[in-house]
Computed example of a mutant assay.
Amino acid sequence: MVAEDLEGAEDCGVRMFRRERPIPLRSSAAALSNNLSVLQLPARDLTHFGVVHGPSAQLLSAAPEGLPLAQRQLHVKEGAGVSPPLITQVHWCVLPFRVLLVLTSHRGIQMYESDGSVMVYWHALDSGDASSSVQAMFARGIAASVHFICVGTWSGRVLVFDIPAKGPNIVLSEELAGHQTPITDIATERAQGQDGVADMVTADDSGVLCVWRVPCPSVQLWQGIVAAGYGNGQVRLYDASTGALHIQINAHARTVSALDLAPEVGKLLSAAEDTFVHIWKLNRNPESGSIEVEHCHGECVSDTQVCGARFCDPSGSSFAVTGYDLAEILRFGSV
């Protein structure tokens, strides 16, 4: 099944989201895929945002009305080199017993307490593992669930870290080899009916997807549906158990830069370099078991190369967007 092209299409019916007050950034967002992380703190009525700009990551806390309450900048751990290495991703990993902020770069992997105040773990990338002496090292793709955090690397390996309930005693417990090109993203969900087991999907630069069932989980699967975004603007939906392609959506005119899922309702967010953000509703037909998708909302961020987008809550009632050379985080809430 192929959905019709939707880039530039008008929304059908009543609009679901409206633009809210943006959050100013000290520096604009770098042109990186998935360059936005969001952590909601309902008990404190706050939302944290994380954005990468070159060798630094900017963390912001904002109240519902959009007023920034605090800002913090994180940098790559110092070491040898003429210029500071670039950060490739920043992401909050929500585990059942703690929340860690993970930062990846061309030098290594840094893990912080959720507010970024204390670094609890540092893992340096080993140049000896590079397949070519001229190949640039980096880590990219972050996911977490149960008591593991998984991080992708330039070599195609996935590093699996065992996270304790508290403290800095984090251990690299396993390395998964299944890709020949650099990892681009990782997505997981808890395996249904199996405690402590998760399904994990990893993607690489060549467009290859690997589905894993291992006791190390993390982000972006929904009820056994794998959502993948591609450089040609397509969003493809696969069945995680069989690997079968169910739906191919010509969603965007340029490279998809971010995907996110609202797990409570099965909403899928796709954002791309074509300035558009689309919201889709996923569903499984109870009779046939087939995957169905419906377009719910489209938003154009004019003259902006969108590089990050995330839902701000698990019900998908609001989302945030970053763009290259855009010195603010745009927010959209339900109408």
Rank of each mutant, 00 (worst) to 15 (best):
F276T: 11
F276L: 08
F276K: 07
V277N: 03
H278I: 03
H278T: 08
I279F: 06
W280T: 01
K281S: 13
K281R: 06
L282D: 03
N283V: 01
R284T: 15
N285R: 01
P286S: 09
E287A: 15
S288M: 07
S288V: 06
S288H: 10
G289S: 11
G289T: 11
S290H: 13
S290Q: 14
I291L: 13
E292T: 15
V293L: 11
V293W: 05
V293H: 06
V293K: 04
V293I: 13
E294A: 13
H295V: 09
H295W: 08
H295L: 10
C296R: 12
G298E: 04
E299V: 11
E299C: 14
E299A: 14
C300P: 05
V301Q: 07
S302G: 01
D303A: 09
D303L: 05
T304R: 04
T304P: 00
T304G: 03
T304D: 01
Q305F: 05
Q305W: 07
Q305H: 06
Q305V: 11
V306S: 05
V306H: 05
C307K: 03
C307N: 03
G308T: 00
G308A: 03
A309N: 04
R310E: 06
F311K: 05
F311M: 06
C312S: 12
D313R: 03
D313S: 08
P314N: 10
P314L: 02
S315I: 06
S315A: 14
S315T: 11
S315V: 10
S315G: 15
G316P: 09
G316W: 06
S317G: 12
S317K: 09
S317R: 10
S317W: 00
S318F: 03
F319C: 07
F319H: 07
V321A: 12
V321S: 12
V321C: 11
T322N: 12
T322D: 13
T322V: 07
T322R: 08
G323P: 11
G323A: 10
Y324C: 12
D325A: 11
D325W: 01
D325K: 12
L326W: 03
A327D: 13
